[in-house]
Every structure is written in structure tokens, then in C-alpha cells.
Simulated assay, not measured.
Amino acid sequence: MLVDYSLKMPKNIFAGEHALEQLETILSKDMKKVVIFTDKGILGAGLIEIPKQILESKGIDYSIISEIPAEPNYHQAQEMIDQFKKENADFIIAVGGGSVMDVAKLASILATDAYTVKDLLDDPLLAKKQVTTLMIPTTAGTGSEATPNSIVAIPEKELKVGIVNPEMIADFVILDGRLIKKLPKPIAAATGVDALCHAIECFTSTKANPISNTFALEALDLIMNNIIEACTNPEALEAKNNMLLGSFYAGVAITSSGTTAVHALSYPLGGKYHIAHGVSNAILLTPVMRFNEPAIKENLAKAYDRVVRGGNPDLSVDEKSKYMITEFERIVELLEIPTSLKKFNVPESELEVLVEAGMQVTRLLVNNMREVTPDDARKIYLEVL
């Protein structure tokens, strides 16, 4: 556990069944121009109607950028940012999942022509906050609303990378379960397991500390005890609000700790095969946890004591640890998320390409409690091929 640690998080968070109406108190008539970042699916579902109505009632000029693709590469992100620059906006509202929020966060620090997204790939700390931001997640979730991270693909390397800059942390966050009420089950499940990965990875990271553990454990408790209900019952608003809160807490944990080998080894799957980020993490969650178990079983036992309702306190550390890994596996199976790369036509002949790409994600691999060698990565990938 780290000796020195810190925490950075959004300045203002509103959560609960009617949190979206708090936009009334956030918006100021002094604002000259607001840009709403979203995507076509969110736009079509009518999820930005309340923000639009509030903006109109206050007489605030706004425009909408809705062409953001799922899991964009850095060229696509730059296109959206160039479009944003023309608006001369002084406030950003992002309504969407991780991709929407990630692009909006990049826009907030790239509102001038001083730097581009490509420049930040080499030096993420170049840019400073230019425009105030509000993040409204419509999945639970990527945790992007809480983090200083923006994930973009690099097509020429067939890899995804994280641009990390504290200036991208949101100024405002709204968590409202109504916005995920109609989320299709596959998306709810994949993003929910992504949040689960954030929580358990941060709790078992070499950078774990008392601050991150506080948020990671609470996130794990909320997610594991609500994810099935939230993903399978459209009317389970309490479970959905709990998932939004759990996802947010897991995102906060990332800012103080960091994810590990699950995320590191999943990035090539998204970058080369365009497998959804949450699905990639779900595929690798159990294999990586089993690999890590010798180094993290005490952590997993503590997680068991926190999250398992009616658990047996007399179980040994080994028994609690194995229970948790089995429970992760059960959740993925119950949510019908693929657990193999066969469905995505990833041939075994690509094994060495995956290993080489995965081992490049040193930013996250250094967080793993158990060292991951190329041979270890090879064995983990072989489990899911």
C-alpha cells in the first residue's frame, strides 16, 4: 500500500431520483453558449430533452454535437473537438456513456489551437482546463464522470490508450437513475462489469491506499449487490441509482489508485478487434483474478467480508478469496456476457500480437500486485482464445 496518496474528484456531485433537475441550479444566465455532447442513440432516446428544456427556459444559447462514435480513435475525437471550437462555448454538458464523456473532457482542455489530441498522446499534461464541464452518465458505468482519463484508440498501433490529465476532472456531475432506465441489457451488463472491474482492480492495485480503498470497497458493495437486478429489471430504479453511485465511486477510486492487468490486457482487444471495452474486461476478469490470487487473496477476503450478505465469517482467507472469484465469474455468466474470444473470431495465430500489445500497457501493468511477464500474458490470453 502506498505511503503517500492523494485524491482528486469532481467539485460538485448531485445524485438521486430527481438529480437531473439540479441542472437548474448549475446553469447561469451569464453563460453565453453551452454545447451538449452526446451520441445519436442518446439523442434518439430523448435523454437530453430535460437539459434542453432547462436551457431554453433560462434563455441560454446551446448547440448539440451528436456524431460521437462508440470508442473513438484520436482522429475521430479531434474531429468532434474541431467542431466544438467553432461554437466558442463557455460550458459543456456531456450526456452519454464513456466515449461521449471522454471526448467532452478532451474538448474542455483543447478549446484553443495550442494542442491536439495527438499532442496529448505524447504529453498528456500539456493542456489546461479552458471550459467548465458537467458530466451526466447514461451508463453505469465507465466511471468517466469521475476520472481525469480519456480513452482513445490509436489505429496505427491497433491499441487503446488512456490520456490522463487532472485538468479533465469534471466540475459538475449528475447521477440520475432515470437516464439508465431503458438501457439495453447487453450495454448495461458490459458497462456494469466494467465498473466492477474498476472497483476490484483498484482495491488490489499496488497503488491502493486508505482513500482509494474507501471508495473501491463501497463501489464493490453497491455493484455486486445491485448489478443483476439493475441489468435485468427495467423498473428497478433503486438498483440503478445504486449502480450509478457505485460506478462513480469506482471512478473516484481510479483517480487515487488505478486499474491493473484486466484493463491492461483488454486494451488490445478493443484496439485491434473493436470488442466493446466492458466486454473485453468481462472476458479477462476471472482469468486475471485467478492469476493474481496468490498475491491478492487477503484483499479478496476483506472484500468478501464487506460485500457478501449473510457471509460465513468462519471461512478461511483462501475460501473467501475463491468465493469472490467464483462470484465474479457467476455475475458475468448470469448477465450473458461472452467469456471467450471465439465469438469475436480472434484466431489463436494472433496470440503473439496480443501479448506484444498487452505488454506495452505498462501504465497499468505496474499496478498489478503480481508481476505479469510475456509468458504470463500468453497463458491468460490462451485461456480465453
Rank of each mutant, 00 (worst) to 15 (best):
K8C: 14
K11Q: 15
E17D: 13
Q22E: 15
I26C: 06
V35K: 01
I36W: 12
E49Y: 12
D61M: 10
Y74R: 07
M80H: 13
M80L: 11
D90A: 10
A94T: 04
V95A: 06
V103T: 09
A104V: 01
T116K: 03
T133R: 09
T138A: 07
A153M: 05
I154K: 09
P166Y: 08
V173S: 03
A190W: 01
H198P: 05
F203S: 13
T206D: 13
P210D: 11
I211H: 13
F215A: 13
F215R: 05
L222V: 01
N226K: 04
T232K: 15
T232F: 07
P234W: 08
E235Y: 04
G251Y: 04
G251V: 02
S257L: 10
A264S: 13
Y267C: 08
I275R: 02
H277V: 06
V288N: 06
N292S: 13
N292M: 09
A295V: 08
E298N: 12
A301N: 00
A303H: 05
D305S: 05
R309P: 01
E327H: 14
F328C: 07
F328W: 12
R330K: 15
E333Q: 15
S340P: 02
K343F: 12
P347M: 01
P347R: 00
M359P: 01
T362I: 14
T362F: 10
L365H: 08
L382G: 00
